[in-house]
Each structure stands twice: as C-alpha cells, then as structure tokens.
Design a protein around this nucleic acid. Sequence first.
DNA 1: ATTTTGTTTTTTATCTACAATAAACATTTT
DNA 2: AAAATGTTTATTGTAGATAAAAAACAAAAT
Lengths: 299, 299
Amino acid sequence: MARQNTVFKEAYNRYAAALRTDTALPSEPEIAAQLGVSRSTARAILTRLSEEGIIRWNKRQKIVLRQPTDGDLFPSEETDSLHDIIERSFMQRILSDDAAPGMQINELELAREIGTGTTSVREFLIRFSRFGLIEKRPNSHWTLKGFTREFALELADVREMFELHSAAEFGRLPRDNQAWTDLAAIRDEHHAMLADINHRFKDFSVLDERFHLLIHRASKNRFIADFYDAIAIIFHYHYQWNKTAARERNERAIHEHLDYIAALESGDQAAIEKACRVHLRSARQTLLQSLPQNATESA
Amino acid sequence: MARQNTVFKEAYNRYAAALRTDTALPSEPEIAAQLGVSRSTARAILTRLSEEGIIRWNKRQKIVLRQPTDGDLFPSEETDSLHDIIERSFMQRILSDDAAPGMQINELELAREIGTGTTSVREFLIRFSRFGLIEKRPNSHWTLKGFTREFALELADVREMFELHSAAEFGRLPRDNQAWTDLAAIRDEHHAMLADINHRFKDFSVLDERFHLLIHRASKNRFIADFYDAIAIIFHYHYQWNKTAARERNERAIHEHLDYIAALESGDQAAIEKACRVHLRSARQTLLQSLPQNATESA
DNA sequence: ATTTTGTTTTTTATCTACAATAAACATTTT
DNA sequence: AAAATGTTTATTGTAGATAAAAAACAAAAT
C-alpha cells in the first residue's frame, strides 16, 4: 500500500454527516473549499455518495436523497491520518512509566508495533525532535531524553520569556483589533466555566490553550508561535495522563486568567507584567508537580 | 545505491592524512574512538590501508609502511555527507536573488537537481522547517517564506530575549567554572584579531559564533541552544553571500564584544545587561542592512 | 580478567515505486 | 465571459528493499 486515503474518508464522513434530505448541494469547487480538500477529493466524495444512493448526481444537479446513517460512514480507525496515529502511539509510549530517560528508540521496532513503514516513523521523529524530548546521534539511534525535571524547567524558562514578551505586545494592540473581541469572549467563557466548575473543570485545558494561543499570536513571531504549538501538544498528552487535583488546580488557574485578562484590558504594562508573572509562576509549579516521581535526569 | 559510504571515505581521508611512516597504530577500538566512528568502519579503513600497501596489518601489529600521497585519498566530492550536500545546495538556492518569497518548493525537482532521492530531500526540508524560512501545507507543497525583513526582525527579537537570559546566567557562573577560562581565551583572540584586523577580518564570523555559543551554553537550556544552532547555520550561509562593509562592521563588533566580555568578567549584572543590549542592537542593525533590497514580505 | 581481534546481527540511511491527492488543462453550461 | 464540470498530469505520502554503519557476540591474546 502506498498511501491510505484517510483524507478522503475523513472528509467524506464530515460531509455526509452534515447532509440534509432534499437539499441541493453547491458546486464542486465550493464543496472542496468548505471541506478544505482539493476538488479531486471532493469529486471522489460525490462519486461515493452517489454510488451509495445518498445523493442523485447529474452534472450541476446534486440532490440529497436520504440522510446518511452511521453505517454509511467510515469507521473512525480509518479516518485518522498516519501522522496522528504515530503521534498518539509514540506519546503514549514515552509518557508511560516504563519509558526511562536514556532509553534507545528503534525506528524499525516502532514502525512494526505501530503497523507502519519506517519512513513515516523516521519523519515523525525528526519533526518531534524539536520538542527537545528526544535526540539523535548521527548514524545511530535516537535517545529518549524524557519528560524530566530539567526538561520542565527549561520549557518553563522559555515559556516565561515568550509569554512576557507576547503579553506586552498584546497590551499595545490598537483597541479596534480583533484580538480584544476574542479576549472578551474568552473572558466570558472563563466566567461561565467558573459558575459550573464542578462539572466543567475538565474542559479547562482546551480553554487554557486557546487563551495562551491568543496572547502569543499578538507577538506576530513565528518562533514564539511554533514554540507554543510544541508546548500545546506536549501538554495535551501530558495532562491526559496526569489528572492530579485537576479541579482545584484549574479553578485557581481560571482566577489567575481572569486577573491576567483584566490587566490586559487595563492596558497598564506594569499590571500586565505582574499578572502574567503570577500566572506563570503557578503554571510552573503545576507543571513541576505533575512530573512522575522517577523523573530524575539520567547521566 | 542504498547509501553512500561517505562516513568511511571521510574518516579514511582523515586518518590517512595523519599517518607517519614507521609508526605503530593503536588498537581498533582506539582508532574508532579517535575518528568518532564504529569499529566496523575503523576496520574497513585498516583493510583499505593494508590493501593499498600503506600499512602492514597482522592482528595487533599495524605498521605504517609509507606516507599516503594525495592520490591515495578519496576526492572531496565523495566525502561530503548527503545531508551537507543538500543543505549547501538548498541554502544557495533560497538565498539567491531569484528566490522570491511565496515561491513553491518542489521535492522531486529539488531531488533531481541535487542528484538525490526524494526521501533525503523531504527529511532535510522537515528538519530545515524549524528555522522558519519555509512552511508546509499538508498534502501540498512547501512554500518559501524567505529571508525577509519580517524574518530578520522576529529572529532578532527571540535572539535578544535568549541572549539577555544567557548572559545573565553566565554572570552567575561560579568563578571556577571552565566557561571563564574559555571566555578569557576568546577575549585574547579578539585582541589578536584586532591587532591585525586588515588581514583577518574575514575570520570574525567564526569567532563570533564561538563567542555567542559560549554565552548560550551558560543557560543550560536546550531550546536556547537549539535556536542558536539554527541562527549559526543561517548566518553562516547568509554572510557568505553578503559581504558588504565587512571590515568596518566586524571591527565595530569586536569592540562591542570586548566591552561585553569585560562586563561579564566584572560580574555586575546591570553592566552585563547594558553591554549585551548595546551589542544586540547593533547586531540587529547589521542583520537588517544585510538583507537584499527586494526583501519585502509577500501577502 | 581484561583487552583485542574475528564474525555475525541489527539498525540506519537512502533509493525506487506507486496510490492518494492536488493541481492544471480542456470542455461544457449558464 | 465567467463559472462549472470533465479529464489529464504533477506532486506528495508511504511502503519496501538494500548497502553502509553500528552494535553485539564469540574467540583469541596479553
């Protein structure tokens, strides 16, 4: 097999799920744009919908004959991109307890266990290496550096430098910038979450990511943006496996965010820096406390 | 061809060039360690040296029979690693004047022109993407973002944050740390270069890189170190093609470095920050002035 | 007993091939 | 003429194969 048609299957599911009986569908280029795929893929979707009797398709005429059922959709295992599969599998592996820092990583073995070719694993590892969790010795193996205390501290240091910079930039944005509207919306979501914290504290990490991403966008700096992407991915997996005291931790973070947002809205640079530092200090603590007990650096 | 034996050839050249007639060679593991290759490769080198009549090899006995001549060595084209070949070729291409921002990058075309397979080009591009000069649209082509004014400014911002942090850390190093000895040596090299500036100003960039690398190492932060690696590579190629006013520029930089070094040695954090800022400001200016005239951002 | 050499096995680096997807070109419809 | 559809071509994503290089294992020498 040269390549899985996951783009097609995923887009097919997405499009089929949104169909309503007796409606007419737009032109091919428009469908392609809606789904974010090429027209070739859009046509493949229409072809299959037609074959399955879900639509009647004749040139410009595309009528939905019936609502697709769950059985019409592709199973979810077939719609994940290979990259995502490898990422999930790999993150699970290196954040599990038996992944000791200093461990060797074998490309072929990884590929076999995930059920994929070596090329994809190799490319994944190269991309992943920028997160600083693995390292390669040329012509030899990758080494797991691990989610250690040192890693957390280095990450936190850079994060603090970047976020202080971004927050200051945010404070300088003209008042008519879209970011202020977005910030107000995020502020309201914080209040809403706080009002129902016992049920909704698990949703905080998504909101947290959106909030910090908004701040970092203000810096208009690709290096800062890339770094935050990396952080978001690492945290996404890390906090899936470390849910200690999530409610208390998240509630406190929400309050800090609200103070931070208020400072941003005030436009007072000193207040912004202060609120930002307060939040970053406690975020650093949270990160350090979430580390596994055996997270000591290898020699 | 699955793989070129450039590791072997390069190490062979390195080892052969250092041989002296009538000396005895050490054990295989020792040779391997000296050259930084595996024992398998070291043995391949000994085998070839023996076949060429350069040494007599019998188990532990390895006697140099004659000094190898230039003709015994592999030509330099055969000793460059594929990665280096691709890097050079690619950098030359994107820093040349006809590389317009927004341009598409075609993997197959690049591979053909360089005379290599697509996999290696792909992996290079993935690795290179962390420098922020290119960007990929999934399932589609890479785009050249280009060495633009925006790029230079974003790079300079991050560089300043990191260097201020590293310089402060450097100032806090205990006085018996090896870094202080290294710094003194670099200081002396600056004086030596200054004394003969008219002939040696071209060597400055190497010294510059070593100086900043030393500073950044003090931060003991992998993200800062990685970022500086990226900067060093970019500057290495960039300043090869932009030699405007190199003598004046470098002479001024040397003086700034000396002030900066004196501040570090004083241990006075305020003085360190001041000298660091002065140098960073002028480094930023140098970078901006070195940009090609047409370096305007694409929409 | 440790180091060195001899031999075999494992793993990486790289090429080639091919399906999926995107993109380009040609024709038709409004 | 502009937009949509029909058709062809180009490019990417991934698997599989193989030589180079590293690593492991075995035997011999100090």
